[in-house]
């Protein structure tokens, strides 16, 4: 089974977000980078399937040259190959991103005579949260798809994919090839092993130079929402504060 997993490099913002002076991006000077937890789980799901049934996991990202870091992270936990769709740092919208990913999948099929059996995505990107790249790729390739998957079984008949919605378990049964987006919780991703890290360091990464395309949505600027910044009232220190806590709970009416 050949699996393509799509991951996106995003800044690892912590306590608060600072913006660049022009207000059009996140100031990443002091930040590390990562991928969405959903995507880490997509990589883990792909690696587990291939460990069991054989085949290959190819990690793909569309991003700046530095996004190879995230591809190497995927290799360190078991991906076999990696493709960078190199950008000049400009943000790509979801329609153009989906088209570029689809072109890679089509080229793979043209070269090997077989499509990727499974294309895995995160449910939504951590930064833009567009909720659509996976579905768009599915339509472009003519594959069935399901999103937000929290439990996955794959056998000769195809994919059995489950998720919860409003207290209902929804089971989707899809033939392969298929497109799925998954959510964190579907598995607990492993940490990279030392040999994995070594392999990642040396791995060769294929590069493609897609041409930037605009989407229907044009960015004006970003802002941090005006949330009331409070300064917590200190009830006390250590166990001495317990009576004050009990009083507070009483006042809030949460004690029966």
């Amino acid at each position: 089974m050949d699996i393509l997993v799509c991951i996106k490099r995003v800044p690892m913002v912590g306590g608060r977000i600072s913006l660049t002076p022009d207000g059009r991006g996140v100031d990443t000077e002091m930040l590390g980078f990562t991928m969405s937890p959903h995507e880490e789980c997509a990589v883990e799901a792909a690696v587990r399937l291939v460990e069991r049934d054989g085949g290959s996991v190819t990690a793909l990202t569309l991003g700046p040259p530095e996004a190879t870091d995230q591809l190497r992270d995927a290799i360190a936990v078991g991906a076999n190959a990696a493709i960078l769709l190199k950008t000049d740092g400009r943000e790509w919208g979801p329609t153009a991103t989906a088209a570029a990913i689809t072109a890679v999948a089509e080229q793979h099929q043209a070269q090997t005579g077989r499509p990727y059996d499974l294309l895995l995505f995160g449910n939504e990107a951590a930064d833009t949260g567009d909720y659509q790249v996976a579905v768009r790729v599915a339509h472009l390739l003519g594959h069935p798809c399901a999103t937000g998957i929290k439990q996955l079984e794959v056998d000769v008949h195809g994919v059995h994919a489950r998720r919860e919605y409003r207290g209902v378990t929804e089971l989707f049964e899809l033939p392969l090839p298929a497109v799925l987006s998954v959510k964190e919780g579907i598995n607990l991703p492993r940490y990279p092993s030392l040999p994995g890290r070594m392999r990642a360091k040396k791995a060769q990464i294929d590069e493609v130079d897609p041409e930037w395309q605009g989407d229907g949505l044009k960015l004006d600027g970003l802002r941090v929402p005006i949330s009331e910044r409070r300064q917590a009232a200190i009830l006390g220190h250590g166990v001495e504060a317990v009576p004050a806590l009990v009083d507070l709970l009483e006042r809030l009416g949460v004690l029966s």
């Binding site: 996140v26 951590a126 833009t128 949260g129």
Partner: peptide
């Protein structure tokens, strides 16, 4: 964006 930690202002055509 970022699950509500940032707001984006943009123009949709």
């Amino acid at each position: 964006r970022w699950g509500g930690s940032l707001i984006e202002d943009s123009v949709l055509e």
